[in-house]
Amino acid sequence: MSSSSSPRRALLIGAGIGGLTLAIALARRGVTVEVIDISPSRAVAGWGLSLTGPSLRALDALALADECLAAGYGITAISNCDSNGEVRNVIPLPPLLGPNRPSQIGLSRPALYDILREAALAAGVVIHYDRTIDGLHDNGDTVRATLSDGSEHVADIVVGADGVHSRVRSLLGIPSGARYIGQMVWRALVPRPSWATSLHTFAGTGSNAGLVPIADDRAYVFLTENRADPTPIPENTLADGMRELLAPFSGRVAEVRELITDSAVVVRRPVHVVMIEGPWHRGRTVIIGDAAHAPSPQLVSGAALAIEDGVLLAEELTAAADVEKALSAFTQRRLERCRLVVESSIHIADLGRTGRHAEADAVQQRCHRAMAAPA
């Protein structure tokens, strides 16, 4: 194949949100797509996430937004509260899908993955689990990838959608810049309280908390633990540990705290951020999503950036006659927007640590308005 033609065969590393979105978008444009994922099965942990307006707008371009809306809980505003649950301010979210559809949704992770996976399979995508990439060789026209099971795949383009600790990024020799920002995020599934009809945040002193409805009967509560030791703790202590950290909060948080009793539905993860400023590709291999730009969770926009990446990379690849020019154009198209989200999320985390919650709310609102602009 000539190096100046659009790709016909794509190998994607990572069957997460960004990887599956890209797989769908490419396959629907006639590209043969295979996806490799390191996890041993299609199982996905059961906590929730938020799909902001930009996420939904990008999914709407793939005719998947309404399916996600039906599976989740519609949200139109963020209610920022103090540690007692009293509302300090309400941030209305831009309705990017029009006035009759929610601005944002809370959704269980398994539900979103099922929607994306089924759409990918329906488009002819092949997904392989329990393997990863061990080597890359770019010969100008194609890329030969060696996998951990010893097999080799030849593709016209390889995409690393394999997260903060990306193996593809390492193989390309792109310095990660990934850094731990001193925070651990806890999440737990709980029954949805009747008052939880929007995304709520609760400003504490040592920690900040929040609650996101993800279905009529379910929500997830999150806690950002500041100045935290990232050392793992026994999994059977997670529920007790989260309740202890939530003890300083009263009112609505205290109500929710007592619902956290099962460590099996609690997760605790360190917050790492990434912002790759240079090119995101080498030859015909490119990184997207958290591998290129991982924000902290304060703006609930990591999924939005990954989904947008998938839709827009497919557009660039199938519109351009030269793959490397398409990858360069993709990076330039995404760089400023992704930098805004990553840097704003870190700034909000810093402000929250020092109790400057009103300033953090203002940064949050400005960033959501900026993200409402077309990607």
Rank of each mutant, 00 (worst) to 15 (best):
residue 110 P to E: 11
residue 144 R to F: 02
residue 111 A to C: 09
residue 139 N to G: 06
residue 123 A to Q: 07
residue 148 S to K: 05
residue 127 I to E: 01
residue 110 P to K: 09
residue 96 L to N: 10
residue 98 G to P: 10
residue 94 P to C: 14
residue 125 V to M: 05
residue 106 G to H: 00
residue 116 L to Y: 01
residue 132 T to A: 07
residue 121 L to H: 08
residue 114 D to S: 14
residue 126 V to W: 00
residue 115 I to V: 13
residue 130 D to M: 08
residue 100 N to C: 13
residue 120 A to T: 02
residue 144 R to C: 09
residue 108 S to Y: 01
residue 131 R to Y: 03
residue 95 P to G: 15
residue 146 T to K: 09
residue 103 S to M: 11
residue 108 S to A: 14
residue 145 A to G: 09
residue 108 S to L: 10
residue 127 I to A: 02
residue 127 I to R: 07
residue 99 P to Q: 13
residue 136 L to A: 04
residue 135 G to Q: 09
residue 133 I to R: 04
residue 146 T to C: 04
residue 94 P to G: 14
residue 123 A to C: 07
residue 144 R to T: 15
residue 117 R to C: 05
residue 114 D to M: 04
residue 120 A to P: 05
residue 109 R to K: 11
residue 126 V to C: 11
residue 106 G to K: 03
residue 141 D to G: 15
residue 119 A to K: 03
residue 131 R to W: 03
residue 141 D to H: 10
residue 93 L to V: 12
residue 122 A to P: 02
residue 106 G to Y: 02
residue 95 P to A: 15
residue 114 D to Q: 13
residue 131 R to C: 09
residue 101 R to C: 13
residue 125 V to K: 00
residue 104 Q to L: 12
residue 100 N to L: 14
residue 146 T to A: 11
residue 134 D to S: 11
residue 93 L to A: 13
residue 139 N to K: 06
residue 135 G to V: 02
residue 145 A to P: 00
residue 122 A to W: 02
residue 101 R to N: 14
residue 136 L to F: 07
residue 142 T to H: 09
residue 132 T to P: 00
residue 129 Y to G: 06
residue 107 L to I: 14
residue 111 A to T: 05
residue 110 P to Y: 07
residue 119 A to R: 06
residue 98 G to T: 12
residue 96 L to H: 11
residue 148 S to R: 01
residue 118 E to Q: 15
residue 105 I to Q: 06
residue 94 P to E: 15
residue 101 R to T: 12
residue 136 L to G: 04
residue 146 T to D: 06
residue 131 R to L: 11
residue 129 Y to P: 00
residue 146 T to W: 00
residue 121 L to D: 05
residue 144 R to Q: 11
residue 107 L to T: 04
residue 119 A to L: 05
residue 148 S to W: 03
residue 133 I to M: 03
residue 122 A to M: 01
residue 107 L to D: 06
residue 119 A to Y: 01
residue 116 L to G: 05
residue 98 G to V: 12
residue 138 D to H: 05
residue 140 G to M: 02
residue 101 R to A: 15
residue 124 G to D: 06
residue 101 R to G: 14
residue 128 H to C: 08
residue 124 G to R: 08
residue 131 R to A: 06
residue 145 A to S: 11
residue 134 D to A: 12
residue 93 L to N: 11
residue 123 A to S: 13
residue 106 G to E: 07
residue 110 P to N: 13
residue 147 L to R: 06
residue 108 S to N: 11
residue 148 S to V: 02
residue 143 V to R: 01
residue 111 A to L: 05
residue 121 L to Y: 02
residue 102 P to H: 12
residue 130 D to T: 05
residue 119 A to P: 03
residue 111 A to D: 11
residue 97 L to V: 13
residue 96 L to I: 14
residue 113 Y to E: 09
residue 98 G to L: 12
residue 112 L to D: 03
residue 128 H to E: 09
residue 146 T to V: 09
residue 145 A to W: 00
residue 147 L to I: 03
residue 106 G to A: 09
residue 98 G to Y: 13
residue 125 V to N: 04
residue 102 P to R: 11
residue 129 Y to C: 08
residue 101 R to I: 10
residue 112 L to I: 04
residue 125 V to A: 10
